[in-house]
Design a protein around this nucleic acid. Sequence first.
DNA 1: ACATACATGTAAATAGTTACATGATTTC
DNA 2: GAAATCATGTAACTATTTACATGTATGT
Lengths: 181, 181
Amino acid sequence: MNTNHLCLGILSLGDASGYEIKKAFEETFSHFQATSFGSIYPALAKLTEQGLVSFHEETQEKRPTKKVFTITQEGQAHFYQTLLKAEPTEQYRSDFLFLMMFAHLMPREHIEALLNKQTDHLKMELGILERIITECQTLTPGMRFTLEYGIIGNRALLELMQQRSMPLIEEIDAARSPQAL
Amino acid sequence: MNTNHLCLGILSLGDASGYEIKKAFEETFSHFQATSFGSIYPALAKLTEQGLVSFHEETQEKRPTKKVFTITQEGQAHFYQTLLKAEPTEQYRSDFLFLMMFAHLMPREHIEALLNKQTDHLKMELGILERIITECQTLTPGMRFTLEYGIIGNRALLELMQQRSMPLIEEIDAARSPQAL
DNA sequence: ACATACATGTAAATAGTTACATGATTTC
DNA sequence: GAAATCATGTAACTATTTACATGTATGT
């Protein structure tokens, strides 16, 4: 799954400009996919070249002209094949967890700061997901599922952070103190 | 955080060869970090060049000779600075969730297959994490925390998969059937 | 005056994976 | 006889991010 596939997918849900596709990834899909302008614009150019999408320019008042992309029938058929053939991969990369492995080497204040930052991060993401699932009316069943998936995961992790942060800090401090005595 | 940092971190826990570092990422840390030989060997060469690690060759019987790397004092100091300065980033990329957004376009059997595959994936990872946390005796408090983090997250998601998979399929089928009648 | 939102696009830099090359030993 | 494990390393390829370039309008 690369940016080409992601763009085709978003366009299968409705017309959009490159800028709007980026916004969708920043908002609705940010918890499980991300991409940048530097990937999106070349992707849309390539999809147009391949005849999988087409576009028309829309001149706006007090806004720059935008290119609105539409998925073609070939694009729809191509995306359908992608859906059936894709080998879904999962990847989670966390610097936070890697750093926590070495918490015993850090000053107490720094461990606290890292734990607080991660807690805030989880809270923020949870807030976004809950807002979308309650406010947005036009979700497909699958989208509602992806939002629930994110909410359930983040809630469980937040609970863990709230229960285990202090005990972890105390445990590391306890292991340190013998040298101080 | 790049492969250089990851290697330094692993070596701060004890001496290891490139091959052993790769194994560590396949086993113990696979739920939140990954890397490949093509990244590890150049990283170790660069760290050696910078004087952050040193190595000695160990000839083995019935096994190829291996280079065992040791973190130097400079390496330890450098890693400590990394721990304090690092801006921890989180990234989760899931093709599974992206595909689920378009479940309404797929045949029922395909949705089922995707959900089953994801469930199996979560079960397998959960099994690995639970085995490590019970069997491994030499874990730092931080490592135990990272394992718990993975376990709690996966358990919550598995429960969701078990509760929501069938309802999701039924809901999508129900939305489809009016056309069939 | 400065930052942000809107809007498109390119190019360089970064980083990583995959495949290849080599070779012994063990297991199925 | 084939595949897996142990062991190191390089090179090509792939993909993505970051920074740059350009310009209007709005908000602080």
